[in-house]
Computed example of a mutant assay.
Amino acid sequence: MHGMPMRKVNSALVGLLLAGVAATPANAQTVREQQWHLDAMRADDIWKASTGEGVTVAVIDTGVARIPELEGQVLPGKDFAPEAIAGDERSDYKNHGTAMASIIAANGKGPGGVDSAFGLAPGAKILPLRVDLHGNGISRNTTLIDAIRYAADSNAKILNVSMGSWPDSPDLSNAVKEALAKGKLIFASSGNDGNDDTFYPAATPGVVGVAAVDRDGAATKESQHNAAVDMSAPGTDIVTACSGGTGLCTGHGTSDATALTSASAALLWSAHPTWTNNQILRVLLNTAGKPVDGVERNDYIGYGVVRPRVALPTPGDPGPADVYPLPDLAAAAAAAGTAASGAPVPSTGGKITAPPPPRAGAAVDKGDGGGGLSWIALGLGACVLIGGAVAAVVVRRARS
């Protein structure tokens, strides 16, 4: 039985972090009961098939603090932040990276073993890679690129980048390509300004850009809507473990959605350890909850809302192991080749027209009489299979 509704304490967005994180006060509900996103995604059913065991997620962020909910979950990592930022990768200087790691892999046990927040993939491991959010754009970009390259050479299969506003650069694009070539998947936040501006690395070809949806399956007002959006996940009132205060935080935004998408990939990869990064991503895309108007994708929720509850029991054909399933990587390579030859470069603005707000980002019909969130948990609606390439080619770039 639920007690009083949880009181949400909003906090201002800080710098480049693409989520709001605020302390969550205690109340009559258990922590697990407050984690509506786990109920919506049918976590209890998912965990019967997979907990993410055997999969490591590199959390490229502000550090991952030592908290009970992550005890035994965090591997030795590396600190790429400058000496001016005190501590190391196990110090969280913005109380952000810890929350992202917890959304992914928290074990549900707080101080003294009391019940606390769970991550969606509690069997997964976290590789903490701390980067710089201060200083000028060049130094920040360097730490991000170094972290991506480090993760590419590690045992981590998934790279979670719950932040944005990094400068685009050839070095960033090359680091992403290197990671993909070494079998990694990279998920990044699309941004929280609520407009169509693009954020990097979400807009970097080869990175899966993630948007946020609310309890009704519609894109949140703060979530970016542009050609860089590939997938979406819950991103409002996300209760998770964090550092400081009560040890619990309520977050919102595309940061949280990105962490849930990374966790979903970990669940699927744990169940199918021989699949490649391309096959894992293809199945996540094919089993996502599609837009209500039947289009293959739109700029609000991308190809749909991630649904590991569908992907695990009914993955379908994972497709070719060596073909990246999204169109941006091949399109970017083709554009680069055309430019190098001196021929005219085709337009890269090809955004897909989205339905009008406020239901622009809605996922497939819920099919549950209007209550709950079966649109995430159940396999309703048509799934447009994504093969080696998608017909609509979209190359991401910043708006001029």
Rank of each mutant, 00 (worst) to 15 (best):
Met1Asp: 13
His2Pro: 07
His2Lys: 10
Gly3Tyr: 15
Pro5Tyr: 03
Pro5Val: 14
Met6Ile: 01
Asn10Met: 06
Leu16Met: 05
Ala19Asp: 14
Ala19Trp: 02
Thr24Ile: 00
Ala26Ser: 12
Gln29Asn: 09
Trp36Tyr: 14
Trp36His: 14
Leu38Trp: 01
Asp45Cys: 09
Thr51Tyr: 11
Gly63Gln: 14
Gly72Ser: 10
Phe80Pro: 11
Pro82Met: 08
Pro82Leu: 08
Gly87Asp: 00
Arg90Trp: 12
Ser102Tyr: 12
Ala121Gln: 02
Ala121Asn: 01
Leu129Pro: 07
Asp132Gln: 15
Gly137Leu: 04
Ile145Arg: 05
Ile145Lys: 10
Asp146Tyr: 03
Asp153Pro: 03
Met163Asn: 10
Leu172Asn: 09
Ser173Trp: 12
Asn174Ala: 15
Asn174Asp: 15
Ala179Leu: 13
Lys182Trp: 07
Gly183Trp: 00
Lys184Asn: 07
Ser189Trp: 05
Asn192Cys: 06
Asp193Ala: 06
Asn195Thr: 15
Ala203Pro: 14
Val208Ile: 15
Gly209Leu: 09
Ala212Tyr: 07
Asp214Met: 06
Arg215His: 05
Gly217Ile: 02
Thr220Phe: 06
Thr220Arg: 13
Asn226Val: 01
Pro234Arg: 11
Cys242Lys: 05
Gly245His: 09
Thr246Ala: 13
Cys249Tyr: 12
Thr250Glu: 07
Ser255Trp: 11
Asp256Gly: 06
Ala257Leu: 07
Thr258Phe: 12
Ala259Pro: 06
Thr261Asp: 12
Ser264Cys: 05
Ser264Thr: 04
Ala266Leu: 09
Ala271Asp: 06
Pro273Leu: 02
Gln279Trp: 05
Leu281Glu: 11
Leu285Glu: 14
Thr287Ala: 04
Thr287Gln: 09
Gly294Val: 10
Asn298Leu: 10
Tyr300Thr: 10
Tyr303Arg: 06
Val305Arg: 03
Val306Arg: 07
Pro315Asp: 11
Pro318Asp: 09
Pro325Lys: 00
Pro327Met: 11
Thr338Glu: 13
Gly349Arg: 09
Ala354Lys: 10
Ala354Tyr: 04
Pro356Val: 06
Arg359Tyr: 08
Ala360Pro: 01
Asp365Asn: 02
Gly371Ser: 14
Gly372Gln: 09
Leu373Tyr: 02
Leu380Cys: 04
Cys383Asn: 13
Ala389Tyr: 07
Val395Phe: 02
Val395Trp: 04
